[in-house]
Design a protein around this nucleic acid. Structure first.
Lengths: 358, 358
DNA sequence: TTGAAAGCGCTAACAC
DNA sequence: GTGTTAGCGCTTTCAA
């Protein structure tokens, strides 16, 4: 598409000035180098002709595109639309444009898409796909391209990162379950190649230890953040006769998968086993029973990531290791209930086997 | 960000040829104007220097940006991520970039964002925000900018449109409910400034008439596609003593809102009133009871919209009124059940008031 | 304060 | 086949 028929020269001619002058008159930063009446004449001419500046040409000249790329693993994962939206609103406010890249969870796609965005001359990246070891991020760091991480971070810590306070979130889950009387708590851990998986698992361990609760055999790693993985993990735990009255899942989908797998074994949630999720996806509160889960301020995370990047692009180089953890909130709902089974076992009232859910 | 340090001239120098030659060697469409060994030399040089073409500069020269803008009203509405994803996958496949604009349901934002995208020189638009009377679309048509409508269309019909077969979808709902014995069916209509609202309402009327079911006072318009609007509409219907045993909602959120409003009146779904939704958002099948709703192939709609636009950009001007309606599918689930109340009333077994739900 | 002129990196028409 | 040249629309020195 032809960007526009009317160019700056046309405006200049209409206003009876040189293109350079028109440019200055229209550029807020240079407007004061031009006489007020000239500014007015140029502005009138621009309006009259319906002038729209050609951002490409400007970008070519200034090597700034006013475009920011946002890389997500899967936009249909209910987590990301909120992040995208938060970011987009801030970017639009500052006249930046958002290009969205959905990598479909595929590192190859991610690499090629990031390369394509670089060729496009995007000014910076907001990356929500960080893996723990992430060569793509290493390249971005190498090339010194302004990049901000959101939701997940990578190992090196070479980029600013905006996330939720996972440690606190998980601790609240454990505390909540303990208050309800649970002692045997299973953790459905997220993938070890994501910071969220690692961080939440570590937080779980720490929270359990701090409360003198057992952690051995209390953690099952899930290969991905999907219902299938959650169901699979629970089945594996049951198969090996694991002993739990509650589950802390590393994310909502794992929690749902877990609940469904338990249901297939005739184990009711929350009557027999309590479950907590993580993220508070939109639909979690609508399920029956509604899920107890941790609300993460996704919109604010996206917005803050955008602000951080924008500040960087404006020249405020960030502290090498700005790591912002936004506060999270426990949403108490129907999937957690007091641990009848657990207390039964603890008091040893009867000779029942320790596997409370088999 | 400086797009790249190494330019085409650098590659050309390295390969010992002129920039123009290097350009041809690297351009698939012009490669055969160049001797094979030159092509090889240039390619090697490019690889050696890590050359990445500057898309901006190319775009400035060719007035094609290989960028497509996708305009959505609200990315957190579970409808749109699937459309976005379908479109993005196709666009990426053809080396196009997607810029996403979330208008926040605000026509003003939409207008300014579309203008910004135009200034950016996007090659075309995919618009998912169409209102029935839509000045922004009129401008796009006026400027002859390749634009494809998805999900909703506007009045004029000046653009290709990819949507679901709403008429058939609604008819399936009505038929399904009738099979279950329902005679008094209320329609929660979508906003009249959307084609989906109008189309589904018209389809509802037609389906009811064709079955000789009453349509007077059977339609309540909702101001927006939100739960609140759905609840409000149901309350209004109850207040005026409306007579229904089933509801056909114009979309899932309206259906949920309706169910919640009914529940507050002590009316159970599906025992007392059956409800159908529309779109089959991800979480609809998880609710308790799971919602009977119409599945729309959102991903395919997005993908097809992208393909249609791409074909246009490649020069295949579309038929002025390509209107593609993809087949939809009724997902029968727990929110619809046989009409006990309705039959009770029909048989007049007791003297109960005609308002079956009060 | 304004005009002139150069050039961002690339491609395409034209020449050789 | 390859080099030359002009120019996409804009910004920004440098002069005047």
């Amino acid at each position: 598409m032809r960007v526009n028929k009317v160019r700056l020269v046309d405006v200049a001619r209409e206003a009876g000035v040189h293109a350079g002058t028109a440019s200055r008159a229209l550029n807020p930063a240079a407007r004061d180098e031009v006489s007020p009446q000239t500014v007015r004449r140029v502005e009138r001419a621009a309006r009259k002709l319906g002038y729209v500046p050609n951002t490409l040409a400007r970008g070519l000249r200034t090597s700034r595109s006013f475009v920011v790329a946002l890389v997500v693993p899967d936009i249909t994962n209910p987590l990301f639309p909120h992040i995208v939206r938060g970011a987009e609103q801030v970017l639009a406010e500052f006249d930046y444009t958002l290009v969205l890249t959905d990598t479909n969870n595929d590192p190859k796609t991610e690499r090629s898409q990031v390369a394509a965005m670089r060729a496009r001359g995007v000014d910076g990246f907001i990356v929500a796909t960080a893996r723990w070891k992430d060569p793509v991020l290493d390249e971005l760091a190498e090339a010194e391209i302004p990049t901000v991480l959101v939701n997940r971070r990578n190992d090196g810590g070479r980029f600013p990162y905006i996330g939720g306070d996972d440690r606190h979130g998980i601790e609240m889950c454990v505390e909540h379950l303990m208050q309800l009387g649970h002692r045997s708590i299973l953790h459905l851990a997220g993938p070890a190649d994501t910071s969220t998986g690692r961080e939440r698992t570590s937080a779980f361990r720490q929270a359990m230890r701090a409360r003198r609760l057992p952690t051995s055999r209390a953690i099952v790693e899930c290969a991905s953040y999907t219902e299938q993985a959650g169901a699979h993990a629970v089945n594996a735990a049951l198969d090996r006769g694991a002993d739990f009255t509650a589950i802390v899942a590393a994310n909502d989908l794992l929690a749902i998968g877990a609940q469904e797998a338990l249901a297939e074994h005739g184990i009711n949630c929350p009557k027999d086993v309590s479950i907590t999720g993580y993220n508070d996806a939109d639909f979690m509160r609508r399920l029956t029973p509604a899920f107890t889960t941790v609300r993460v301020p996704l919109n604010r995370m996206g917005a803050l990531a955008a602000r951080t990047l924008l500040a960087w692009l404006r020249g405020d180089e960030p502290e090498l290791s700005t790591q912002i953890l936004l506060p999270v909130e426990l949403m108490q709902r129907g999937t957690t209930a007091s641990a009848r089974w657990a207390s039964r076992k603890t008091t040893g009232r009867d000779g029942e086997a320790p596997n409370t859910v088999a």
